[in-house]
């Protein structure tokens, strides 16, 4: 006993009442685990819809089936699918499309999910775009140390900024309709995308 460094003992682990000994996932909404291959199949179907010209149906499908239970890789795949669909829809079509979506059954939830993807997409900066050459370029080490900020401005010149401007214009149109309430929901929701 004498050679145990008692200062490093995690006393929370010894207290049965402590939150440390409690599985917090039991408090959050139950999500179904989704395998990466399922996400891939789904993304294939959605791309099919986009190619068929039904961008609205594709977006709806992507948002209705957001893989909350997938692992990081699965979520990443779905994000790029959603990003692709968003990029396919023209500026002028955004507002009417969002209106139709918002007014439909369960539309508020769909809009919240879309908001989640917009924020996730924006948080990615340019390190995740469908264009692989941009991916490589933005990852070069920055002398300044502000790798994220630097990466963004670099990407902007390459077309990664295009994805960002798509996110921003969607964000503007979406907030106009669903208000700040949706943003707060995205922040407080434990079901992340």
């Amino acid at each position: 006993m004498s050679n145990i460094n008692w200062r490093t003992i995690n006393i929370d682990a010894l207290d049965p009442e402590s939150a440390y000994n409690f599985d917090l996932t039991t408090l959050t909404p139950a999500v179904q685990p989704v395998s990466t291959s399922d996400v891939q199949t789904l993304s294939g179907q959605i791309r099919q819809l986009v190619r068929g010209g039904d961008a609205e149906g594709a977006l709806r499908g992507a948002l209705e089936n957001a893989p909350y239970g997938a692992d990081d890789q699965g979520k990443q795949i779905h994000l790029s699918t959603v990003t692709e669909v968003l990029g396919q829809i023209r500026q002028t079509e955004m507002t009417p499309l969002l209106q139709r979506m918002y007014q439909s059954e369960g539309g508020s939830e769909l809009c919240d999910t879309l908001m989640k993807y917009l924020y996730k997409g924006m948080a990615q900066g340019t390190s995740h775009t469908t264009n692989n050459s941009v991916h490589g370029r933005s990852m070069t080490p920055q002398a300044t140390g502000f790798s994220q900020a630097g990466g963004r401005s670099f990407g902007a010149a390459e077309g990664g900024g295009q994805a960002m401007s798509v996110f921003l214009s969607w964000h503007e149109k979406l907030v106009e309709m669903v208000g700040p309430g949706s943003i707060v929901r995205v922040m407080s929701d434990r079901r992340t995308v």
């Binding site: 909404p29 407080s188 929701d189």
Partner: peptide
């Protein structure tokens, strides 16, 4: 009762 997003 839990709300859909588990917000406090």
């Amino acid at each position: 009762y839990l709300n859909p997003t588990a917000g406090w």
